[in-house]
């Protein structure tokens, strides 16, 4: 935040996974002092309420965010109204229901379900001897691939020997090389089965 304010930078903050924050941490960048002058926040109904195929999200641009005299929100408003025709009424009613008491409880159940998968993955990989991180405040678990292998080597080996598909870390940038990502978004059965297979193939 300090860097952005000193340098006149804008922070583009993607908070699509905020529902997975379980520890006492901010959920929005705007909970941090001064963020309204230098940040834009992206949020989504995909990962909390399962809208990946239904499609609804939102972007927050505070009025305080200005470049010189120009309000960034007014430019986005101009773009949005020119290039976008709005989310279907039916879908927006669905998104509104996410905030009803029942909706909130049901979303909590979904998040807990996926976080439990993430826990099973994290613990299972650790038992199989992998060095793991993630799976806390996030539904993704990262493992370090065995010495001498690239992320894509591990992708091929995992697909071939365990018939499990994950995401090679190098696909996310050079610092991801040597790492591999698994998601907690599977079904409980598939997640458990995948971990059993991985343990069988890689377990020591």
């Amino acid at each position: 935040m300090e860097y952005a304010r000193t340098n006149g930078a804008v922070i583009l903050y993607d908070a699509a996974y905020e529902a997975y924050i379980t520890e006492d941490l901010p959920h929005s960048i705007f909970e941090i002092e001064g963020a309204k002058e230098c940040a834009i926040e992206f949020r989504s109904f995909s990962k909390n309420a399962g809208f990946t195929g239904t499609r609804c999200a939102f972007t927050v641009i505070p009025k305080e965010l200005k470049v010189g005299e120009v309000s960034v929100a007014s430019l986005w408003n101009r773009r949005h109204t020119t290039k976008f025709n709005g989310v279907p009424y039916i879908v927006q009613r669905g998104a509104e229901a996410v905030y009803s008491p029942e909706g909130k409880a049901q979303v909590r159940e979904l998040v807990d379900f996926y976080m439990n998968n993430a826990r099973i993955i994290r613990e299972g990989l650790a038992q199989a001897g992998f060095s793991v991180s993630g799976g806390v405040n996030s539904p993704y678990v990262w493992l370090k691939v065995p010495e001498g292998m690239t992320s894509w080597d591990f992708f091929d080996e995992l697909l071939d020997k365990a018939n499990v598909v994950g995401t090679p870390g190098s696909g996310f940038g050079p610092s991801g090389e040597g790492y591999f990502r698994l998601t907690g978004f599977g079904t409980a059965e598939a997640t458990a089965e995948a971990i059993e297979r991985i343990k069988k193939v890689f377990g020591k």
Partner: peptide, 27 residues
């Protein structure tokens, strides 16, 4: 082969009931 996909972050649980009810009403 029975492939298990834990790659892309796509959800697998159905939409919450409250959402479905609201969308039915909107339809």
């Amino acid at each position: 082969s029975k492939i298990i996909r834990l790659g892309i972050g796509d959800v697998t649980r159905p939409l919450p009931k409250a959402v479905i009810e609201a969308m039915h009403k909107a339809v």
